[in-house]
Nucleic acid binder design. Structure first.
Length: 825
DNA sequence: CAGTGAGCGAGCTTCCGCTTGACTT
C-alpha cells in the first residue's frame, strides 16, 4: 500500500512540473481549505466541539479509491469507503408492497453492518459528509441509502461527483457540490424493484412447472436465450461443400498465390476447370495500388478487456476480473469495472510523453473515443495504467501479462494510424471468363501496430486464405506461368458457439447487464445448470483435393478433424426447456429489447418526466396477470421426447427432465414397473438415440466379489464410479476405463489404489474412536470427525494433536457453524 | 448431495448491482 501512495505522489509531482496551470491549482487548493473552514463554522456544534472542527468525511465506494483520494485532499479530509451498496431490499417475498404503490422496505445488509456503524460514528463527529459515490444511477442510490442508514440530513451532506481519479478532477468536484438527485435515486429504485418482482415471480413459476430451485431474471434468462438460439441454429445447420481453386504463379523466381473468384459445387466441375487451365494462357489484366489505413482500438472497458484477455491469454472472464482487481488494489491500473473509453487529460499527456520519447513524435496522435454501447453510464475512466512510464509490473505472471495488455492497448490508442499500400491483381485466362485475383499488402508506416493489434474472434470459416504479404514486382499485361493449381473441397461452417468473452460482447451490444455483473451472470447460468462449457473431440471428415502440376492432374482423398471444440458455452437440456417455457409465456420479459426499453423509462424517471411507481405499475399489472394465468393454465414443461419402443417388451422409451435433471424412462406414466435412468453428462434429450438410452439401463453392473463383498460399477452425480464395501472410487475416463466395460480385476485394482492413497493422507488415528482421524487435505491437515471436517489452527502441529485437543476443537467448531451454502435435508 | 423419478405436505429455493475479503476438504 505504501507503494501506491508513493506512486500517486510521483504522478502528482510530475503534474506540477509540466502543467502551467499549477499555480491556479495551488490557489484552488488553498481556497478550498478556507471554504472548508467556513463551512464548518456554520454548523451548530462547530464552536462547541473543537476537536471535530474542520473535519470532513468523504465517502466513496471502493477502499482503494479512498486511499488515493485521501492523498489528494490533505489532512482536513478523511476518506472512507462504503464497499458498494450498504442497504438492499429485505430478503424474502415481502420487500415490496405491491398494493401500496410498490413501497419498498430496505435493510442494512448483514455484511455491511460493521461498515455502517463505523461510518455513522465518523459522520457524527464530522462537520460535513461528502458523498462521493459514483456518478451514475447506482452511485446516486448508494449516496441516498447512506443518508438513510447514517441518518444524515440534507444540510449535513454535500454530493460530489467525478469520473476520473486525478487531483484536478477531485478538487474541481469539491468546488462544485450539489444535493442528492432524487429523480436519479428513484430511477434506481425502479430498476431494483423491477428486478426483484421479475425474479421472484418468475422463479416460483419454474419451481412448479419445471423443476425446483430454478431461477429466472431480466438478465440471466435473456443470456440463456442467446445461447439456446445459437444452439438451435447450429442444430439446424447443414454443411455444404464446394471446391476452392488457388493457383501459385512464379515470376522472376518468386512465388505468389491467387484465388479464383468462382467456386465449384462438385469435383467434376473443378476437374473440368483445371483441365482448361492446362491449355490456358494466363495474363495480368488488372493491377491496382491503393493506400489504406488502420486505426487503433479504443482503450479498454470491462467488456473489451474481458474479450482481449480471453482471446490473447485464454482467461475466463472471472479470472481476468480477479487479476485486474489485484492490479487495481496495488495501484497499477485505474478502476476495472467501467463502460467508458474515456481517458483523463493527465493520462493523455502521460501517454503522449511516453510515445514521443519511446517511438518518436510521428507515432503520437491524440485521440478521444466515444462509447458505442447502449446503456453506458460512464462513471469512470477507461481501464488504463496509473503510471504510463511503468512498462511492466513484476511478480505474478498473470498480473504481468494482463498489465502488459492494458499498457499496450492504452498506448496504442494514442498512436498514429498504421498505413498500408494494398495491391489488387486480376489474372485472366484466354479460354474462359473465370479470373484469379491476388492481394498484397505492404506496411508503409507502422503507427500503432508497433505496440499492439486487437485480436479477432474466429467466427465461422476463414474466407480468405491468401496471405496478405508483399507481392513480387508485377506489371499490367504480364504473361504468367503457374507452378501449381489446387482445387480443394471446403465446407461451410455452422455459426460458432459463444465463448464467455463473446457472450459478454453480445450482452453489452444488447445493453443487458453491467460491467460489475458480466462475469457473475456467466457463472450464475452455469451454476443453475442452464449452460456448461463443452468439450468435443471432433469427427473425421474426408475431403477431395485436385492438384495440377506441370500439366499433370492428380486427384486425392484426404481427411481432417472437424468440430473440435473446448470451453465454449452450450445450453443444457434444462436451459432449453426453461427457455422455451419462458419465451412461450413471458415473451415481453424474454425479448432481447426488454432491458433497452425499460432503460428508456428509467431515463425518463431520472429526468423527472415520470414517476417511478407509476412506471412499475404499468409493467407489473399485465406481467402479474401473465404469472397467475401461467400458474393456472400452463402444462408442466419437461421437454419430453419419445424415442421409440423397447425391442423386447415393446414398452415406450422416452427422455425428459425429471426432478433431478434429464432422464430416460422405460414404460409410460401408468406403468407400475416403469424404470428410470439419468442421462450422462455429455448426452442430451435432443440428440440421444434409442440405443444410447437403452445402454443406460445396463447400470449398475455387478462385477463380482472381492473380499466377500460385491463390487459394482455405475454412474452417479459425480460421474462413473466403482463401489465396494460402502466405499466409492471414481472411474476416470482418461485412464481408458468406463463403467460399461470395466472388469472385476480392474475394479479391484482401483479399489486398492484408492486405499493406498487414503493411507498416505492419514496423519494420525485415535484408539478412542476409529471414525476420527487427522488427515492431509488440499488446504493442509484437518480433523475428520465422523462426517464433520474441522480446521486445525495454524499454530498447532497436526501430528502432535491429542485426543482431548481434537475433541475440544471439534466441539468449538460445532458451536460456531460457518455459514454453509449447502442446505440440510 | 454417489440407489432418487408417484403423491402428499412440510419448508426451502429465487432477482440485479455495487463492493471486498472469508472460506473452502
Amino acid at each position: 500500500m505504501s507503494l501506491v501512495y508513493h506512486q500517486e505522489l510521483l504522478e502528482y509531482e510530475e503534474y506540477y512540473l509540466v502543467n502551467s496551470d499549477s499555480l491556479v491549482l495551488i490557489c484552488t487548493f488553498l481556497r478550498l481549505c478556507i471554504v472548508a473552514l467556513q463551512c464548518s463554522k456554520v454548523g451548530p456544534q462547530a464552536s462547541i466541539n473543537k476537536r471535530s472542527f474542520m473535519k470532513n468525511l468523504v465517502i466513496v465506494e471502493s477502499p482503494a479509491k479512498a486511499k488515493t483520494i485521501e492523498s489528494y485532499l490533505g489532512k482536513d479530509f478523511i476518506v472512507k469507503s462504503s464497499y458498494g451498496h450498504v442497504r438492499d431490499l429485505v430478503s424474502g417475498n415481502k420487500a415490496i408492497d405491491v398494493d401500496n404503490a410498490f413501497q419498498p422496505t430496505y435493510e442494512v445488509t448483514e455484511d455491511k453492518k460493521k461498515v455502517v456503524a463505523e461510518l455513522k460514528k465518523l459522520a457524527k463527529n464530522a462537520e460535513m459528509v461528502w458523498l462521493a459515490t459514483d456518478e451514475d444511477r447506482e452511485g446516486e442510490a448508494i449516496s441516498w441509502h447512506l443518508m438513510e442508514a447514517l441518518k444524515l440530513t440534507d444540510d449535513k451532506i454535500k454530493r460530489i461527483v467525478f469520473s476520473e481519479i486525478t487531483k484536478p478532477a477531485i478538487l474541481k468536484a469539491i468546488e462544485n457540490p450539489r444535493k442528492v438527485d432524487y429523480n436519479l435515486v428513484n430511477a434506481q429504485q425502479a430498476r431494483r424493484v423491477l428486478d426483484r418482482l421479475v425474479g421472484f415471480e418468475l422463479s416460483p413459476v419454474l419451481w412448479k412447472k419445471v423443476k425446483p430451485s430454478l431461477s429466472a431474471g431480466r438478465v440471466q434468462s435473456v443470456t440463456v436465450r442467446i445461447l439456446v438460439e445459437r444452439e438451435r441454429e447450429i442444430l439446424g445447420f447443414t454443411s455444404t461443400s464446394s471446391y476452392r481453386v488457388v493457383a501459385e504463379f512464379t515470376t522472376d523466381g518468386k512465388k505468389f498465390k491467387a484465388q479464383l473468384g468462382k467456386r465449384f459445387d462438385s469435383q467434376k466441375e473443378a476437374e473440368v476447370f483445371l483441365k482448361k487451365c492446362q491449355t490456358a494462357n494466363f495474363s495480368i489484366d488488372k493491377l491496382e495500388k491503393k493506400p489504406a489505413k488502420k486505426s487503433p482500438a479504443a482503450p479498454f472497458t470491462t467488456s473489451t478487456l474481458q474479450q482481449e484477455a480471453g482471446r490473447k491469454l485464454g482467461y475466463p472472464v472471472g479470472v481476468t476480473m480477479s487479476i485486474a482487481q489485484k492490479l487495481y488494489e496495488s495501484g497499477k491500473i485505474t478502476y476495472m469495472r467501467t463502460d467508458s473509453v474515456n481517458l483523463s487529460d493527465t493520462a493523455l499527456e502521460a501517454a503522449e510523453r511516453e510515445i514521443r520519447s519511446s517511438y518518436g513524435d510521428k507515432f503520437s496522435k491524440r485521440k478521444s473515443y466515444s462509447t458505442k454501447s447502449k446503456g453506458a453510464q460512464e462513471a469512470h475512466e477507461a481501464i488504463r495504467p496509473t503510471d504510463m512510464s511503468l512498462h511492466s509490473v513484476k511478480g505474478d505472471s498473470s498480473q504481468t501479462k494482463l498489465y502488459d495488455l492494458i499498457w499496450k492497448r492504452t498506448l496504442a490508442s494514442q498512436m498514429s494510424d498504421a498505413e498500408f499500400e494494398r495491391t489488387n491483381v486480376g489474372i485472366s485466362l484466354d479460354n474462359t471468363d473465370e479470373r484469379f485475383t491476388a492481394k498484397g499488402e505492404i506496411i508503409t508506416f507502422e503507427g500503432f501496430l508497433k505496440v499492439y493489434l486487437e485480436g479477432t474472434d474466429e467466427d465461422g470459416e476463414v474466407e480468405d486464405e491468401l496471405t496478405k504479404d508483399s507481392l513480387p514486382a508485377l506489371t499490367k499485361g504480364q504473361i504468367l506461368d503457374y507452378a501449381e493449381i489446387n482445387a480443394t473441397e471446403r465446407f461451410t461452417q455452422h455459426p460458432a458457439r459463444y465463448t464467455e468473452a463473446s457472450l459478454v460482447k453480445k450482452l453489452e451490444e444488447l445493453g443487458i447487464g453491467r460491467p460489475s455483473t458480466y462475469a457473475p451472470t456467466i457463472s450464475t447460468i452455469q451454476k443453475r445448470g442452464y449452460a456448461h462449457k463443452d468439450e468435443r473431440d471432433g469427427t473425421k471428415r474426408e475431403y477431395g483435393k485436385l492438384t495440377l502440376v506441370k500439366d499433370h492432374l492428380e486427384t486425392e482423398k484426404l481427411s481432417e478433424i472437424t468440430g473440435r471444440e473446448k470451453g465454449k458455452l452450450q445450453p443444457t437440456d434444462i436451459g432449453m426447456v426453461v427457455n422455451d417455457f419462458l419465451v412461450e409465456h413471458f415473451e415481453n420479459v424474454l425479448d432481447f429489447g426488454f432491458t433497452a426499453s425499460v432503460e428508456k423509462e428509467f431515463d425518463d424517471i431520472a429526468n423527472g418526466l415520470k414517476e417511478w411507481n407509476k412506471m412499475i405499475n404499468e409493467f407489473y399489472s399485465p406481467f402479474h396477470k401473465d404469472v397467475e394465468d401461467t400458474l393456472e393454465n400452463s402444462e408442466r414443461a419437461s421437454g419430453e421426447r419419445i424415442l421409440g419402443n423397447h425391442p423386447e417388451n415393446g414398452k415406450v422409451i422416452l427422455v425428459r427432465i425429471g426432478r433431478y435433471g434429464p432422464m430416460a424412462q422405460i414404460g409410460d406414466a401408468e406403468d407400475e414397473e416403469k424404470k428410470f435412468a439419468s442421462l450422462l453428462k455429455d448426452q442430451s434429450i435432443g440428440t440421444i438415440t434409442i440405443e444410447q438410452a437403452l445402454d443406460l439401463f445396463k447400470l449398475p453392473r455387478q462385477l463380482g466379489q472381492f473380499e466377500d463383498k460385491v463390487v459394482t460399477a455405475a454412474i452417479g452425480r459425480f460421474g462413473p464410479y466403482i463401489r465396494h464395501d460402502g466405499k466409492f472410487v471414481s472411474i476416470k475416463e482418461v485412464d481408458g476405463d468406463d463403467p460399461f466395460t470395466i472388469t472385476l480385476e480392474r475394479g479391484v485394482e482401483l479399489v486398492k489404489e484408492k486405499r493406498e492413497a487414503d493411507a498416505k493422507k492419514m496423519i494420525k488415528t485415535f484408539a478412542e474412536d476409529e471414525n476420527v482421524s487427522v488427515q492431509e487435505g488440499r488446504w493442509g491437515p484437518y480433523i475428520k470427525f465422523g462426517k464433520q471436517n474441522v480446521k486445525i489452527p495454524k499454530d498447532i502441529e497436526a501430528r502432535d494433536l491429542t485426543w482431548d485437543e481434537v475433541k475440544a476443537l471439534t466441539e468449538e467448531a460445532a458451536k460456531n457453524p460457518t455459514k454453509k451454502r449447502g442446505k440440510k435435508k
